[in-house]
Design a binder for these strands. Structure first.
Lengths: 406, 406
DNA sequence: GATATAGTTTGTTGCTTCAACAAACAAAAA
DNA sequence: TTTTTGTTTGTTGAAGCAACAAACTATATC
């Protein structure tokens, strides 16, 4: 049931608007904030005073060179607090310290692997987070919270990992575990959803509220933003776009079904197809690589060969573009997003794939002449998720800033 | 940009909550409203007074048989106003007059066909609406607005039909046309979205906030509710689930693509497949029907035959169930809805199809052991859309009741 | 010094909550 | 049957809070 409103509600709504306006337009004076928001100048003064008291906002300099009393410019205070964004994935743990503007201040990265026990990976993550927290606390900054991105189904309300097939983890109350360690709000989310949020707040999809993010790694995950919010579905299981079937009785997928989109477009599949062609004697500059060791062939190598004009590599990427377009056509028809961001391992091939996808896409999309959808490679790359984890925290703070008032 | 808040905002939010609570719990006293909402008893009294002044709420009777002062029970006033729900589809125009509770008071139905000029169909719709409006006005009820459902892409913000391929209409400012005629708010929406809303408010999906509605007619349309709101996408084109490709190089669709889901599951396709089998000499109780006229075969006849044990008909429906499950598996993985409602022409086969779909669905859905999704046939049937059109208006009134205060 | 703009202070308005009180009914006791 | 008690409902007036309008002060430019 919706929450009733009173004077505190009014103040909170207006404080959120002031923070959002500062986020977009800073540096800006009180008078211009009043104009931009429609609030009264005295109301703005009062709200700014409250925010300055908790150090979310600071004055910078007078705005000269105009007739009339110079306005004192205001910005969000990078030293208003710090957040930690954390990503635990199948072969690495990544963590960043970000300031109150969401700007990266420090990054840590550790390789792990799924042979390691869960406890060890979690301890690695806790240690990395502790290192960054200590760094933040050395600067006497308030620790506002931590966001955690995980490669599986998460219950973001309860702060739990439901299951992560690629990690082999199930039913983990990771929010509680980290809360006991750090005693700050812990926000838990799927890694592709985090990455989508990261690109929306700080990356390629800045301020694009209807967005699909493709996360190509072991599988093909997706993050979906609808009206600027992560889309979870009724139980939190939404967004499994890699397991959208695009061909009846198609390739067998690791999930047990046939014809899943990810069996056509994940980088591992591309590699496997190229390897098979080489084994069948197709002439290619990649042939010598196969003779050294079949496990050494990488997506990067295929991309490099394509860039040098290798026929097999180019054909593989063309096919990949077509296969991507098949599934993306479905997603555009169903979601009508304003933008699709290609992340994960496919980002590096964006400049070749995107033209190939676009060529096919208009034949897949209804009302293609009306439909506006941009395709872009990720701007944040492998850091998209941790930036999104930071955004989870900062968005929560911005959504309820009066919670922090003394 | 989000709207700033003031005293009027507080009043509006609380008034909406009171109306929503009355909608769910009426008849109820002021004291119990206070308990249910968390608002103070004097606030409730004040809000109820305002709503009684505009006749949205009325007192019914004292609640006796309990210790303490009897509370005066309150309900929403069915005579608070009336709305008109209208549906213009390829072969009929339907219109209903509904009271302030959304209850149907009168229904009109007219057959039309796509050979008729647009102007004639629109005039038919205007006349039907006028008849109902006069009926409502005879009872001295305020006319709150009209909702219109159309089989195509609509711009619900501008109140326009962008294009409707099955009607052959384009760029029609139908909201303005009806506004000039009736001078009340006109809400325009896609017919499948309307039907989804209708089932959510008054039908099979009562209060189910994450919902997919299948509308099987000439094609296969879909209505999607996310968190109780119609999902439009960034431009209003979302929800084209009939054109989700489920088979590469599959059947040629009327839209020009291949393998669209609607080429497997629309009733016309089922009929065509059965007819072909009969022509090939398959023994069936339907054979005599073919000899009379190939165009007379209807989905209803196939269904009746299946219910009488006809092997061909049963096989056709079994295949249909499997094909429905293929696409539905994708939709459940992507949207994680709580419920799927089967509407349109397939509703009548629901009792046979739903078991067949469910048998297949768990093999299509990831985390099937966790995923809870109900499948139900439409409860409102062909009236789902007009009830949804009514709900568009009443939801708008409920969303902004202070707009009606004197 | 005049003009224009920014920021602060004062007073008003409207909404909710709180506390107190009146009203109305059921239960218990005489 | 009448009276008293207890409980609940609904109303009234005061207090507190936030926003707004008006008035004033501060400050830079021309």
């Amino acid at each position: 049931m919706k929450q009733t409103a009173d004077q505190l509600t009014v103040r909170k709504i207006n404080t959120v608007i002031v923070l959002e306006t500062l986020r977009k337009l800073a540096p800006i004076s009180r008078a211009k904030l009043a104009k931009a928001t429609g609030l009264n100048r005295s109301t703005i003064s009062s709200i700014i005073q409250s925010l300055a008291d908790i150090k979310f906002v600071r004055e910078t300099e007078l705005q000269l060179d105009q007739i009339g009393r110079p306005g004192m410019l205001l910005t969000l205070n990078p030293e208003g607090g710090f957040t930690i964004g954390l990503e635990i994935n199948v072969d690495y743990v990544s963590a960043i310290l970000a300031d109150f503007n969401g700007q990266l201040r420090r990054k840590l990265y550790r390789s792990v692997n799924t042979k390691m026990p869960q406890h060890e990976i979690l301890m690695t993550a806790v240690r990395m987070a502790t290192t960054l927290v200590e760094l933040g606390q050395e600067q006497k900054l308030p620790f506002m919270g931590m966001g955690i991105g995980l490669p599986g189904v998460t219950d973001s309300i309860a702060g739990k990992l439901v299951f992560a097939p690629n990690l082999g983890w199930r039913n983990l109350d990771i929010g509680q575990l980290f809360f006991k360690e750090f005693n700050v709000p812990i926000l838990v989310e799927n890694e592709a959803n985090c990455a989508a949020l990261g690109e929306y707040r700080y990356g390629a999809a800045k301020d694009v509220r209807n967005l699909i993010y493709l996360s190509a790694g072991v599988g093909l995950g997706g993050g979906i933003l609808i009206d600027g919010e992560i889309f979870h579905g009724s139980q939190g299981f939404a967004g499994e776009i890699g397991h959208m079937m695009i061909e009846r009785d198609g390739f067998l997928c690791a999930c047990g079904k046939r014809g899943c989109w990810e069996t056509y477009v994940s980088p591992n599949v591309v590699i496997e197809n190229v390897r098979k062609s080489l084994e069948q004697g197709v002439v290619s500059s990649l042939t010598p690589l196969l003779q050294r060791s079949q496990y050494a062939l990488t997506f990067r190598q295929i991309l490099d060969a394509a860039e040098q004009g290798d026929g097999l590599a180019l054909a593989a990427l063309t096919q990949l573009g077509q296969d991507l377009a098949s599934g993306l056509g479905n997603l555009v028809n169903i979601f009508n997003p304003a933008m699709i961001v290609i992340g994960g391992a496919l980002t590096q091939a964006g400049h070749l794939l995107i033209p190939a996808i676009q060529k096919q896409l208009s034949g897949q999309v209804l009302a293609a002449e009306h439909t506006l959808v941009q395709l872009l490679p990720s701007q944040l790359g492998v850091d998209a998720c941790v930036h999104g984890a930071v955004a989870l925290v900062l968005d929560a703070v911005m959504r309820d800033p009066t919670n922090w008032l003394t």
